[in-house]
Amino acid sequence: MDLFEILFWILTIGAISSALGVILSRNPINSVICLIATFFAISGHYVLLNAQFLAVVNIIVYAGAIMVLFLFVIMLMNLNADVEPQKSRLVQFAGIISGGILFLVILAALRDSKINGVLEKSSNSVGLIENLGKTLFQNYVLPFEISSVLFLSAMIGAMVIGKKEPSNDLPERSPNQN
């Protein structure tokens, strides 16, 4: 047991327990908080794996932006445990069983697999921003540009979808009422 493994286990327990929290808590807000915690644990794993840059980006993007959006939407809809739709026990049970079976199948399959790489504990420079930047802009320029176009179109799409359409059941508001 060295420091690396201690940290690994702490982070792993944190990640799995908070992930379970996501799916088990009845209140959506609690789910969001648990998911943020999961992301923090995963970011911790990234740091362990010498991917500091990715760790921070993970926090900024997931915890800082995506989850804020989730929180936003949940708050706007005022969802809480009282209005949370519940599935019947049977369906929940089936969900757990099938997820568990999938996990078991993969575990059983991987037990005999020939993937046996070893993660060296010494740090390397792969995860440094300079390295990533070079890889990104030398080998993956085209995917990068395409994904930026994708992102732009997603943004516009989200705006178009989310725009309040002039509906008939709401009285038209006059400009000076704003």
Binding site: Q52, V57, I59, I60, G64, V68, I129
Partner: peptide, 25 residues
């Protein structure tokens, strides 16, 4: 002295909003 200092600031700043949101909600 972490090599991604400024990003760290961003990360923390982006988290700052949780305190307000959670408290307010």
């Amino acid at each position: 002295d972490i090599n991604i200092g400024i990003l760290f600031i961003f990360g923390v700043v982006s988290l700052g909003v949780y305190g307000i949101m959670l408290g307010g909600w």
